[in-house]
Structures are given as C-alpha cells and as structure tokens.
C-alpha cells in the first residue's frame, strides 16, 4: 500500500470515529428520553399500571388488550375522539385555507408594505398559547367580551361561546385559526415566490382569468407545500390540549371540548390510570400515523 493510500484509510477511519462521537450526545438523549419511553409506552398500555403501582410496581398485571377493550366501551373516550376529529377535520382545512388566502393577499402584485403585513399576521404564531387562550377566554365572554360587542353592532344576539356545548368547539377552532394561520402563510408565500412571474404574464396574454390562473398555475405550484402544510397542521391539531385546558376548564362544557390528549392527561396524570392513559396515547399515535400515510398516499395518487 502506498503512503497516500494508507493516509486516506486512516483518515476515513478518523472521520468515522469523529462522526459517531459527534452524533452520540444527540442519539443518547433521543434513545433515553424518547425511544425508551415510547417502547415503554407500548408495554405500559398492556398493563393495569395505576396509582397503587406508582407506590409498588409489583402490583402491576399484564392485561394484554384489556385497556383497549375498555376504551371501546368508554363513551367519554368516544366523545373525546369525536371532538378531536371535529377540531382536526374542520379546524385543519379552515386554517390551511385562511393561510392560503392570506399568502395570496400578502403576495399580490403592487401591494405596499408586504413585510409589515407579513410580520403582523405572523405575530400570533410566536406568542404563548396559554396567554393567548386566557385573552380569548375574555374576548368570548358572553356579556363583556369584544366579540359579542362587535356582533351586537351587526344585530346578532349574544352567543355564550364557551358556555354553550354547541358553540364551544367552533370558538376553540376560531382561536386556533387566528393563532396558527401565519405559520402556513409564510410557507405558502415562499412557494408563491418560487413561481416565475413570466408564466403568469404568458397566461394573461393567452386570456386566462384570475380564477384560471389560480387553478392552473398557482395551485399546482403549491402542491408540495400543500402536502407539507397538510401533514404538519394535522399532526399539530390532533394534539389539541392547551386551548381546552385554559379556556374551558379542561374540556367543558359537558365534555364538548374534551380532546384525546386532554383525556390522556386526565387519566394518566390526574387519576394515575397510567396503563390506561398509555393506551389512549397509543390510539392517538396510530390515528396520526394513519392520517399521515393517507395524505402521502393521496398525494402520490395525484401525481
């Protein structure tokens, strides 16, 4: 072997050793604080680990799919699941649509102060959800709340937003859309800016109207971002927790805003039904996984 070859050999070994050493802290943290707990979560979900087991783990019994059988017959769980799907299926698309609309507005030709509008629209995204939920709790106040005052001007009677089981979830959705639309808007704006202006000019010369330009040029160009935004929004919305915790005292009225994560929190951390709570978390994971695969599949089918 030549000297240069030997050198290269030792160098690549040195590089590999350094590479492994550099990723080691991250991998160790992820292994101990994520992989191990996730695996343990699967195991816990098959046990009746509860408040007695917190004191003495030896009392834990393996019950197989027992927790899932209980879940199937638990009306409160079905309520939480239904509410969560309501939030994801109505709130998710609404939020993406508002984001898209805002992106088109901000990115429209000849608009002044684009940067300013973008900053303003994005501001709710960076703010603390708990604080913002506290503010909206009062905006929704049936008597003194700003929203009902504005509606009164339009002659619409007072709505008991967070106290009426029919209106509580729409109220939570409205707040979530306000809080989140700026995030997806930024991603759409980046996508819009990657479309060359000359294509639109050519389309206009060919007599395409605004709607046709949107359908034939803008939407196809945004397709990769739509998938990304769709998946990210769905995963985030399935994890609904803070809004009901702060705005509706943990899922009220009459469980109208009880979410799956809230149910897991209450079962696991308030009543210490840890095995049962782990089963609830596992169901959430399976739903999120199925939703993600479904969206990716739909996207592939379209191409």
């Amino acid at each position: 072997m030549t000297a240069a070859g030997g050198n290269r050999f030792s160098r690549s070994r040195r590089e590999a050793r350094a590479g492994l050493a550099f990723v080691a802290p991250a991998l160790a943290l992820i292994a101990v604080f994520f992989v191990v707990p996730v695996v343990a979560g699967f195991l816990l979900a098959a046990t009746d680990f509860d408040i007695y087991a917190v004191g003495d783990p030896a009392t834990t019994r393996f019950i197989g799919f027992g927790n899932f059988a209980t879940l199937l017959h638990d009306p409160v769980f079905w309520r939480a699941l239904g509410n969560t799907f309501y939030f994801v299926l109505v709130g998710g698309p609404l939020s993406v649509a508002v984001s898209l609309g805002a992106a088109l507005l901000v990115n429209a030709r000849l608009v002044r102060c684009k940067g300013l509008f973008r900053t303003v629209y994005f501001a709710p995204v960076v703010t603390t959800m708990v604080a913002v939920a506290v503010v909206w709790r009062y905006l929704y106040h049936p008597r003194f709340g700003l929203l009902n005052q504005l509606l009164a001007v339009a002659g619409i009677g007072p709505v008991n937003w967070l106290g009426d089981p029919r209106w509580a979830m729409p109220a939570v959705i409205l707040m979530a859309v306000w809080k989140n639309f700026g995030y997806n808007m930024i991603i759409f704006v980046a996508g819009l800016q990657s479309v060359p202006v000359t294509i639109y000019e050519a389309a206009r010369v060919d007599g395409a109207g605004a709607w046709q330009q949107f359908r034939r040029l803008t939407l196809p160009a945004l397709r990769p971002m739509l998938v990304f935004v769709g998946v990210i929004t769905m995963i985030g919305y399935f994890q609904l927790f803070t809004e009901p915790y702060v705005m509706t005292n943990g899922g009220g009225p009459l469980n109208a805003t009880l979410s799956v994560v809230m149910y897991m929190y209450k079962q696991g951390f308030r009543w210490w039904n840890i095995g049962f709570g782990a089963a609830v978390a596992l169901v959430l994971f399976l739903i999120i996984l199925a939703g993600t695969l479904l969206q990716l599949r739909l996207q592939k089918g379209r191409e």
């Binding site: 994520f34 343990a40 816990l44 696991g268 951390f269 959430l284």
Partner: peptide, 17 residues
C-alpha cells in the same frame, strides 16, 4: 420518520423514568 410519533406517547413512561 420518528417525527410522526407524537410526544404524548412518551410522556407517561418518561414521567415514571
């Protein structure tokens, strides 16, 4: 790929840990 696993799945065991 592991990013699709919601943090909530790890929370109860992590608390015990």
């Amino acid at each position: 790929t592991a990013m699709v696993i919601p943090a909530q799945v790890a929370m109860l065991p992590l608390f015990l840990l």
